[in-house]
């Protein structure tokens, strides 16, 4: 499966039980408190499992993971 905005929103809603009605692609996820540490870990593991990759500790940054746009951009750059 490829990670897309819809895939992430579905994951937030169905697995993390987050109300996604107000979540846009540039909504801050972790720094805003919308997703807490426990669920951020779950999200990273979900990305790893879906993309068959490992997110390395130096890559765990707000620049890479703090919004849907940033996640998609991070994964795009890694794939390039």
């Amino acid at each position: 499966m490829q990670i897309t905005s819809d895939v992430l929103l579905d994951y937030f809603s169905n697995e993390l039980f987050i109300d996604t009605s107000d979540v846009a692609n540039d909504t801050l996820l972790f720094s805003s408190g919308l997703i807490d540490s426990f669920n951020m870990i779950n999200l990273i593991m979900f990305i790893e499992e879906t993309c068959q990759t490992k997110v390395k500790p130096p890559e765990i940054t707000l620049d890479n993971l703090d919004s849907i746009d940033r996640i998609l951009s991070f994964l795009e750059k890694r794939a390039a």
Binding site: F30, S31, S37, F38, M40, I41, I44, M45, V55, P57, I60, T61, L62
Partner: peptide, 16 residues
Amino acid sequence: ENARRRYETGLKLQSL
């Protein structure tokens, strides 16, 4: 292994 990685990831997230 995953549990260990989750823990390490959690530590990294705390630093953010």
